[in-house]
Design a protein around this nucleic acid. Sequence first.
DNA 1: AATATTGTTCAGCA
DNA 2: GTGCTGAACAATAT
Length: 265
Amino acid sequence: MPELPDVEIFKQYFNSTSLHKKIEKVEIPQKEMVEDVSSRKIMINLKGKKFSSASRHGKYFFAKAAKDKYLVLHFGMTGSLKYYKLKKEKPEYIRLQINFKNNYKLAYVCPRKLGKISFTESIDEFIKKKGLGQDSYDENFKLADFRKLLKNGRGSIKSFLMNQSHLAGIGNIYADEILFQASVHPESQLDMLDDEYIKRIFRKLNSVLNKAIKAKAKKKNMPGNFLLAHRAEGEECPVCGGKIRKSTISGRSSYFCEKHQIKLA
DNA sequence: AATATTGTTCAGCA
DNA sequence: GTGCTGAACAATAT
């Protein structure tokens, strides 16, 4: 479930396992998943280097291998990272693997192959080329910026929150969660949201991402009033006791409480 | 067995 | 040109 909080946790995991270790070999068994560059280029640029830091923009992950050299990973719907040593710990569906000199390996696992492997000389250029908007979990992202962004959008609030060119990092699960916490129906139209609603959504956007990251993006650690653990038709709303409903918005399953989430349309 | 699934891209349309 | 919507994509779990 890699949305922003998940990728943030992958970054922390990477930082605590894979920095400052010499890279002996890079294996890319799934060349089709490499985008815009050759897999050869990635291997050549990583071999013999050490990762010095990692960063994230929206759902994209960047690992710095040298000055102006970054491995880029996107996790699609099912991607993850695993650092391991023993053969019996080796995960299935490895699409890229970094073998370190200390005999540990970092595997990029992606069963459904909807992720992407890439490489860039400039993170800013990469973000621009991808047309990604402001990162949703950036302390410089303020209410005034959010207001400005909303003015340029049309359609439903949920589609807006999920649109990576407006705001990078929020996907289906967390868009639902933010709107659930803000008591706003996902199909509410942007032009109907007054400033009170905008403030509320923005506050919840921040608090939901914060709490999700504190919970290590794990469902079982999430606060009890989160929708996340109750995403099923007919479930009881953990906030007001209403019924959880499901509908399709922007081609994705949306879950919301029919009782306390108000529809503005 | 049929159905659902966390994301992005691209064609089609307003 | 613009920007939104919905289908397609791959492979698995239930």
